[in-house]
């Protein structure tokens, strides 16, 4: 692998990769892409969400899955960090808790690729401080 030492090198590398990128046919419509949101508040970061987010970015790309990885704030499930929310096109968003790299691999292979449910889903009707207050 050639070493990239400056932004000029990076620019050249981009031109070199351009042909390869074109082949991947990333769809322009964002609604057709899988959306992975990683909770990145204090609780998430302290539990290792940075590693999980980097893993998702690298692996989804390596496995040729058209996806967007974004960060989000605390979803209120601090006990289950790192947590992620996955939205597969045409389906409801699903929140997973206790996601490490191993779990992330399982989510990519089973849930994102084959739409099979995997352990660790946090149900949407789970009580949070907010809806406790409302009652």
């Amino acid at each position: 692998m050639t070493k990239i030492k400056s932004l000029a090198d990076l620019k050249n590398k981009k031109a070199e990769l351009q042909s390869k990128i074109a082949l991947r046919e990333k769809s322009d419509k964002p609604e057709g892409r899988v959306l992975v949101k990683v909770a990145m508040a204090t609780c998430g970061i302290a539990s290792g969400s940075k590693e999980v987010m980097e893993y998702f970015m690298e692996e989804l790309d390596k496995r040729n899955i058209d996806a967007i990885v974004r960060q989000t704030g605390c979803m209120g499930y601090c006990y289950a960090e790192p947590t992620i929310e996955v939205t597969v096109p045409g389906k409801e968003a699903v929140v997973f808790g206790y996601v490490d790299n191993k779990k992330a691999d399982e989510i990519i292979e089973k849930y994102i690729r084959n739409h099979e449910l995997v352990d660790g889903i946090i149900p949407v009707n789970y009580q949070t401080i907010e809806n406790d207050k409302e009652e």
Partner: peptide, 12 residues
């Protein structure tokens, strides 16, 4: 930006 570029950028 492509994931490969991200990787190179980090390394840089």
């Amino acid at each position: 930006i492509d994931q490969d570029i991200i990787r190179y950028l980090k390394q840089m």
